[in-house]
Write a protein that binds this DNA or RNA. Structure first.
Lengths: 231, 231, 231, 231
DNA sequence: AATGAATGAGGGTTCATTCAT
DNA sequence: TATGAATGAACCCTCATTCAT
């Protein structure tokens, strides 16, 4: 939600019938306020991590009162979840859109994937950091929520999910005899997702660390489907 | 899960002249107390993450008073640092000892490295988790320390350190024409360290997820020196 | 705990070995601090009711920091419980001590009981108010505690308990044919306890409302064992 | 549990000219909205006590917006007052209607009174609980109101009011030489009202605790006019 | 050196009430 | 008049750290 541009005419086009806020701040449109909160949270979480941020800061950064924050999210965990979920979804879309013909050579598919992820990350650096950065650690939900057990799985689990697809694809390739049979798809998938997330976050933090192409080429070369291809 | 006997003549060798107190508990030897604190901290950090633990818990788990904790460490960050540093050191030792002749074929060297890391992790699961697990996130030092800027760099930087050696080795190999020239050593090193840490932590959490050999084989195959070897 | 004198040489006699606090405030003796907190809480609860008081106020009134309050009690409910329980216990003692020979005529026993309760209430007005006043309403325990269900029964239940003895005694008397058979012991017991508590609290609030004797005489006359005695 | 039909021509008779809105919900009639709010508040207060309920809940339960709540009542205390006052009034009516000829024997009058109160309570359990239950505690008016002193007396005072009549009647009887002269009418009145309220609430909470007749018989026997009648 | 009670800033969350629509 | 989003003071409680013993 933080970085605009990429997704074209999204929500900011408050339909004429909604009376664009009178140029001033308080915007009566709940969706707008919620977006402002999510964006503020994204920025703060990206900068300071879940524990390094408090609800007052988020509210202040969003330009609203604390109470308003709690009108939109049950608690701090919920915003975090929202950011992570949004990001996962956005990433999924980006990757899907970037995917070439399924019949294309494997390397081309892998490169498209990596390129897709990187592009998304460039356009949504903060969201990417929140979802996949070092701070995307499992958070202890508040005692109350913990008791009722109704908090969604923490971000790591979500990451695990995106691992699944990779794992399946690798298993197919291995079974098709294209990959080294000693490669464990589950391990390899986990490995790739971890390296990709880490490398991308690291590079975003200081893009002078490597060229964009270097990042892509290297990740492609290390992708199990390429790295462990049978010679 | 604390530090067993693998690292030989380390601290546990309480010099004979300072025999543990009669019944065993109150141990007057500062080094022993410190070790007990470090171990307690390791267990707690591994289980609950930096933010999920408080100094009283650590002290209680170590069987000493809170005050004693602060006699041995300036603050909570310091114990954490100590655990991380110890682990890095131990890991370095383990890897060094496991390394074969420098003239051995690359794959053998890589396998020895991976095997060395995995063995260390198995013997020091909690320490490994603290140093490399998801919770090993950068911690916000307390406001006071932040102001004076005199807290050591957070764990991530330490991880970066262990990346350095890998990076240099890869650069050599690439310059020697053994690796694909498009591979960026810095990126590749980062990628490998990330995948290795993540995979090992993930596997330690539930060893039924893969066989030991599967983990090793797969990491070896994905190591840049193997994966990006020129065909 | 508020009103001294009655219980003779109780806790305030800090044994010489404990080093009487250096005349100053901070008293290192936990029992003393806890007593100060309980007393402060008693005063505040008596004056403003459970919901009308906050932990900071209690701590301030006790002359300690908030943290100290929470070092001694898990939460606000716990102090309240402590006050109520202490009071019930004290009342029980007082009544027991005041009870005449079991062979004495019923009226004498009843009078001794009422007189005992009233004396206790006079000596411990605030505690009595907290335990039996209008504010002694069931309090919603904090969400966390509610989940784990480990909060003791709220004061009302405690009141119910003291009702039990009365009920048993009335049942005996009725079965012995001394009381009107249409009298329901459970109802009567409940009724008597309620009237006694209410009347005493009301009278304590403004002793000019009735003479001490008037209160006692009237309560005795209305006690089921007297009021419903068979003519 | 809200107010059913027992009290005849009261408010529910929305004048024909103001028919409830077509489908039934949004009702434009202020009196209807207010009634819905009062009823909702009654249910919530009865269930959770004054402090256990918040204005949003009342509004939601009434099916209106929070704003509407504040259009009808100055604040939360005002609805509570309204419920209590309504109840007192209704109870007064009920009792008056049930009262037999003033020349009837005292016991018959007392029984009619008790029976009247009990019947009213059965028909308006929630209102009775709100007005007389344990939760009917004095509420701390909001700071602002407290300063200006313009909030009506809390419920207890109201209860005191209904005590007045009893007190006068008892004084008459005593002066007429029918009652023991040592009985203090003020104390006795207070005692009776308290016991009656408590017993009725207790019985309503679980009617299996006693038979309806048992409750009535016992309360009658314990009424000062009977209990303290001169033999 | 060891102890553990004391401390209070800070954080998460609630809720009575307001006010623009 | 009805609405419900917005507000922020207030409250409960935690925990890193200190310090008297």
């Amino acid at each position: 939600m933080a970085q605009p541009s990429s997704t074209p005419g999204s929500k900011q086009s408050t339909p004429a019938r909604k009376r664009a806020a009178p140029a001033g701040r308080p915007s009566r449109d709940p969706a707008v306020v919620r977006r402002r909160l999510t964006e503020a949270a994204t920025r703060r979480f990206a900068a300071a991590g879940f524990e390094g941020v408090n609800s007052n800061q988020i509210a202040r950064e969003a330009g609203v009162g604390v109470g308003t924050f709690y009108n939109h999210f049950r608690d701090k965990h919920e915003v975090h979840q929202a950011v992570v979920l949004d990001t996962l979804e956005g990433l999924q879309d980006a990757v899907t859109r970037a995917a070439p013909d399924a019949a294309a050579p494997v390397e081309q598919q892998v490169r498209a994937l990596v390129e897709g992820v990187l592009s998304f990350a460039e356009g949504h650096a903060d969201r990417f950091r929140v979802a996949f950065g070092a701070e995307a650690a499992p958070h202890r939900p508040p005692r109350s929520a913990r008791a009722t057990g109704d908090v969604a799985q923490p971000s790591r689990a979500q990451v695990g999910y995106s691992t699944r697809a990779t794992e399946r694809r690798l298993a197919q390739l291995r079974d098709a005899g294209v990959l080294e049979p000693t490669l464990d798809p589950a391990v390899a998938a986990r490995a790739f997702v971890a390296m990709q997330n880490e490398v991308v976050c690291w590079w975003l933090d200081d893009p002078s660390r490597a060229t964009r192409e270097g990042v892509i080429e290297t990740l492609v070369k290390l992708h199990p489907a390429i790295a462990a291809a049978r010679k």
